[in-house]
Amino acid sequence: TEKEKEVKRLAKERGLSPDQVRELAQRAGFSPDQAKQIADEFA
């Protein structure tokens, strides 16, 4: 999704850790499970 792409782009730009990616995703409105899946891509 657009929102997911945006979260991943920000995460890459900022060099976020997987935990930070998960927090960012949840703040963007993703469920905890979705946020974990997104964060796992950065693990």
Rank of each mutant, 00 (worst) to 15 (best):
Asp33Gln: 14
Leu24Ile: 05
Gly29Leu: 01
Lys36Leu: 12
Glu23Ser: 06
Lys12Asn: 08
Ala35Thr: 03
Arg14Cys: 14
Thr1Ser: 14
Ala11Asn: 02
Glu4Asp: 06
Lys36Asn: 12
Asp40Gly: 05
Glu13Phe: 05
Gln34Ile: 10
Gly29Ala: 01
Arg27Cys: 14
Gln34Val: 11
Asp40Met: 13
Ala28Lys: 07
Leu24Phe: 07
Lys12Gly: 06
Ser31Glu: 05
Ala35Trp: 03
Gln34Lys: 15
Lys36Arg: 13
Glu41Asp: 14
Glu41His: 06
Gln26Met: 15
Ala25Gly: 03
Ser31Met: 05
Asp19Gly: 07
Val7Ile: 15
Leu10Asn: 04
Phe30Asn: 00
Gln37Cys: 07
Asp19His: 10
Leu24Met: 09
Ala25Leu: 09
Phe30Lys: 00
Arg14Asp: 05
Ala43Trp: 12
Pro32Asn: 07
Glu4Gly: 08
Gln37Val: 12
Lys5His: 10
Lys5Met: 13
Gly15Gln: 12
Val7Ala: 02
Asp40Asn: 10
Leu16Ser: 04
Arg27Ala: 15
Glu4Met: 15
Val7Cys: 06
Val7Thr: 02
Asp19Glu: 13
Ala25Trp: 01
Arg9Asn: 05
Lys12Gln: 10
Lys12Val: 09
Glu6Pro: 00
Arg14Thr: 07
Glu13Thr: 06
Glu41Asn: 07
Ala28Tyr: 15
Leu10Phe: 08
Gln37Asp: 05
Ser31His: 06
Ala11Thr: 01
Val21Ile: 10
Ala25Ile: 02
Arg14Val: 07
Ile38Glu: 02
Phe42Gly: 02
Ser31Asn: 09
Gly29Lys: 00
Ser17Ile: 04
Gly29Tyr: 00
Ile38Pro: 02
Glu4Ser: 14
Asp33Val: 09
Gly15Asn: 13
Gln26Cys: 11
Leu16Thr: 01
Ser31Gln: 06
Pro32Phe: 12
Glu23Arg: 08
Pro32Gln: 10
Lys3Asn: 07
Gly29Trp: 01
Leu16Gln: 02
Glu4Trp: 15
Gln20Asp: 08
Gln20His: 04
Ala43Pro: 04
Phe30Leu: 08
Pro18Ala: 12
Arg14His: 15
Glu41Met: 08
Arg22His: 07
Ala25Phe: 04
Gln26His: 07
Arg27Lys: 14
Pro32Met: 08
Ala11Lys: 02
Pro18Asp: 05
Arg27Leu: 15
Glu13Ala: 11
Pro32Ala: 13
Glu13Tyr: 06
Asp19Cys: 05
Lys3Tyr: 06
Asp33His: 11
Arg9Ile: 05
Gln37Arg: 15
Lys12Leu: 10
Glu2Ser: 12
Lys8Gln: 04
Glu23Met: 11
Pro18Gly: 09
Leu24Ala: 07
Ala39Ser: 06
Glu4His: 09
Gln34Ser: 05
Leu16Asp: 04
Arg22Ala: 13
Ala43Tyr: 09
Phe42Tyr: 15
Arg27Val: 10
Gln20Tyr: 03
Asp33Glu: 14
Gln20Ser: 05
Thr1Arg: 13
Glu13Gln: 08
Asp33Thr: 13
Asp33Leu: 12
Ser17Phe: 07
Ala39Lys: 02
Gly15Met: 08
Leu16His: 04
Glu13Arg: 05
Glu4Lys: 14
Arg14Gly: 12
Gly15Leu: 05
Ala28Asp: 03
Glu2Cys: 12
Phe30Val: 02
Lys12Ile: 09
Pro18Glu: 07
Val7Asp: 02
Asp40Arg: 13
Glu2Thr: 10
Phe42Ile: 13
Gln34Asp: 08
Thr1Asp: 13
Ser17Tyr: 05
Leu16Asn: 03
Ala11Ser: 05
Leu10Lys: 07
Gln26Ala: 10
Phe42Pro: 01
Gln34Trp: 05
Ala39His: 01
Ile38Val: 04
Ile38Leu: 11
Glu4Arg: 15
Glu41Gly: 06
Arg9Tyr: 04
Gly29Asn: 02
Pro32Arg: 08
Glu41Cys: 02
Ala11Arg: 00
Phe42Asn: 03
Lys36Ser: 11
Ala43Ser: 10
Phe42Met: 09
Lys3Arg: 14
Gln26Asn: 05
Arg14Glu: 09
Asp40Tyr: 13
Glu13Ile: 14
Gln26Ser: 07
Gln26Ile: 15
Ala11Gly: 13
Lys8His: 06
Val21Gln: 00
Val21Leu: 12
Leu10Pro: 00
Ala43His: 07
Gln37Asn: 10
Leu24His: 03
Ser17Pro: 04
Ala35Met: 02
Lys3Ile: 11
Ile38His: 03
Phe42Thr: 05
Val21Glu: 02
Arg22Tyr: 15
Glu6Ser: 05
Ser31Pro: 12
Arg27Asp: 12
Gln20Ile: 04
